[in-house]
Design a protein around this nucleic acid. Structure first.
Lengths: 152, 152
DNA sequence: CACTGGTAGTTCGTGCTAAGAACTATGTAT
DNA sequence: ATACATAGTTCTTAGCACGAACTACCAGTG
């Protein structure tokens, strides 16, 4: 690890940038009457339905934590629990219409805000940063908590 | 903002990298029997004592949220509330000996883990990433939630 | 078929986090 | 002395996160 002697900058940079992104995420969520966790849930579900197990793995949550999160999202009619046709124990968590709309608005707003964080970078620098972060992310297998593009 | 057309990568990169850092931070905290917020509190206090107001501003918390956080840290003897000599309403939150030790261990462990996230980058790439993140951070005035180096 | 062990989710209890509103006590300006 | 602002706390409400115990279902084995 520290063999290079100059790694301090990367670490602090990553931590602080992450703090920045968290703040932006929270602000976005608040704007749409969501908690950060609910926002994250919606973003994950934008790509496809998930079973509770996969959802927990993706979000990094224990299953017992997830039940409540999904419960509250169901109560707000953002999400539905559908029976899994192949396994009567299992459940598919799916966005409702309202949930999808809200997810897309939230997603867009968050993208805009995060984008603004990098507003000071010139085009090529942005690309360079994207490439470097991409590499870090790739090498550490992050679950798809946030789509790359709104692909539909 | 999106004028460049290729900004998608930066946004997703930042969000996912931040997810990664959060996970690492949480793991570190857990290792030391802390919550993420308590860890953050300790890290902030490593540099100097803070009044409740400044602390709230730095951590992005409402003062009412902070009271409880500090209370719990006090109960664990990680932190003390000292009277502010110049203002009898105010309080200085200071690390105890135990708190400083724990903060330093936690800080070191977190640095190590975050560093490992960037393990796949060659020296010059790390430097480049650090520089770019540094610029982003600088242009968005992040409070000092995480020291750059253990300066003592 | 009955049995065994594993898997999917929920429930429950505990502690932590976060916010707003109302409040106390102190400081500051006029 | 009055009036207003500031620093923190308290209280209430809602949500988050976990582990342990539990239910229901699945899969394989004898």
């Amino acid at each position: 690890m520290g063999k290079h002697g100059e790694d301090l900058g990367v670490v602090a940079g990553l931590v602080r940038a992450s703090f920045l992104v968290n703040a932006v995420y929270a602000e976005s969520a608040r704007e749409y009457g969501l908690t950060v966790q609910q926002g994250q849930l919606l973003c994950v579900l934008m790509s496809r339905p998930y079973g509770m197990g996969d959802l927990g793995a993706t979000l990094g949550l224990e299953k017992s934590s997830l039940t409540g999160l999904v419960d509250r999202a169901v109560r707000r009619e953002l999400v539905r629990r559908e029976p899994d046709p192949d396994d009567r124990r299992a459940v598919q968590v799916v966005l409702t219409e309202d949930g999808r709309d809200l997810a897309e608005d939230f997603y867009a707003a968050t993208c805009r805000r995060v984008d603004e964080l990098a507003a000071g970078l010139a085009g090529p620098e942005r690309d360079r940063l994207a490439a470097l972060l991409g590499q870090v992310v790739r090498e550490n297998e992050v679950p798809t908590v946030f789509l790359d593009t709104v692909q539909r």
